[in-house]
Design a protein around this nucleic acid. Structure first.
Lengths: 205, 205
DNA sequence: CTCGTATTTGAATCTCGCTTCAACTAGCTT
DNA sequence: AAGCTAGTTGAAGCGAGATTCAAATACGAG
């Protein structure tokens, strides 16, 4: 028998297992047994902890989203120069490559959101949080005189997040000429117009 | 018995039925019986025409994509002024609302593309075609002196398509403050910076 | 009008995943 | 070390959907 665990620990394992299973089989196409297998358990054990599988899936999506957001915040937390900060933020919103797990999962959700209100809400909330994040950077830069905003900060922030999202999809779909570096360049091209700052792409981060 | 049809006619019916069924149940979650019902046939008849269901689904996606693109081209075909043309093109790339069938289906595909090469290729191709479409408009406008491009046309075109895509997802997910009109405004805000043209939003089209 | 064939049906069968639950056991408590 | 409890298993039963196929039938050709 697999090693026994406390309820709380096992639930964390299961959220992780569900995360992995969804990546392989789709957010909606994933099966109970696939999750059980990822967790090294039987289907019965999974049901013991999550009688309603949908609940587990939602928690897994939520956790993935949270992790994605936290990782970004952490990456940019140490940077004080607004221009550097903006560049790094843009990079951190893009997948590392076509197999980036975090972003893959977010993309999965995009389609499902049209049919599933919970997923729609999750994505919408994430979008808005990212917009706020960018807005703060933009406003700070403007206050320091580093940025001269060509539009109001909400507009720029929304467009930046939108560009990030869209190029994320392109990268996941393996577009032949749009890789993470290229995507950063494209988004920076907009950011330069909007902030009036030459924004040098940070060398690797 | 349902009226009989030639092989070719029936296949067209089935593609249409599959299209409708996918909208209701998801591109990947759709079932054979649901397609059969949409077509007014039994599952056996569907399999007679498409022994491999995946093939039907791919053809249906392909057809949906083609229809989406053709509709756009038709809407903008009569317009000669580049500025008007650009505005109408932007609008035509967005869903009418959260229930817009064509765009819903495209969004479905986004997530699946990470796991399915065929879908990835379809989406990538569509993206590139849309980029070309915008590039032509931009270049024409520049040649007429109506636009003063702040960046090369490919960069602008890619960013425009990306913005369209991303706001399409937001609209489908029922973002509370981003509806089609708002999305047009946001995209136009970028387009103005990039083209140096004041681009009035066309009143309803 | 009749034959021949392509299309469609409907029922039988198969498959697979979900659900349930009694039995088992690891690890804590006292 | 004996008992208790919570976590886990494995097997049985169920149901939904896919698949198969012989029989039925619509339609065109001759």
């Amino acid at each position: 028998m697999t090693q026994r665990k406390s309820k709380a620990d096992r639930r964390l394992d299961l959220i992780d297992a569900a995360h992995r299973a969804m990546l392989q089989h789709g957010a909606e196409g994933v099966h109970l047994n696939q999750i059980a297998e990822e967790a090294g358990l039987t289907s019965g054990a999974v049901l013991y902890h999550y009688p309603d599988l949908r609940e587990l899936l939602i928690e897994a999506q939520h956790a993935g989203m949270e992790r994605f957001y936290e990782r970004r915040m952490k990456k940019i937390s140490g940077i004080s120069d607004p221009a550097d900060k903006l560049v790094v933020t843009i990079r951190s919103g893009l997948p590392d490559g076509p197999d980036d797990a975090g972003v893959r999962l977010l993309c999965e959700l995009g389609g499902a959101a049209g049919r599933n209100r919970v997923y729609a809400t999750l994505l919408t909330t994430l979008f808005d949080r990212q917009v706020s994040m960018y807005q703060t950077i933009l406003e700070t830069g403007a206050a320091h005189g580093v940025f001269t905003l060509a539009q109001d900060s909400e507009t720029i922030a929304r467009n930046l997040v939108a560009l990030e999202d869209a190029y994320g999809y392109r990268i996941i779909a393996r577009h032949h000429s749009i890789d993470p570096d290229k995507a950063v360049e494209l988004i920076l091209d907009y950011a330069r117009l909007a902030t009036g700052n030459p924004l040098r792409p940070a060398d690797r981060r």
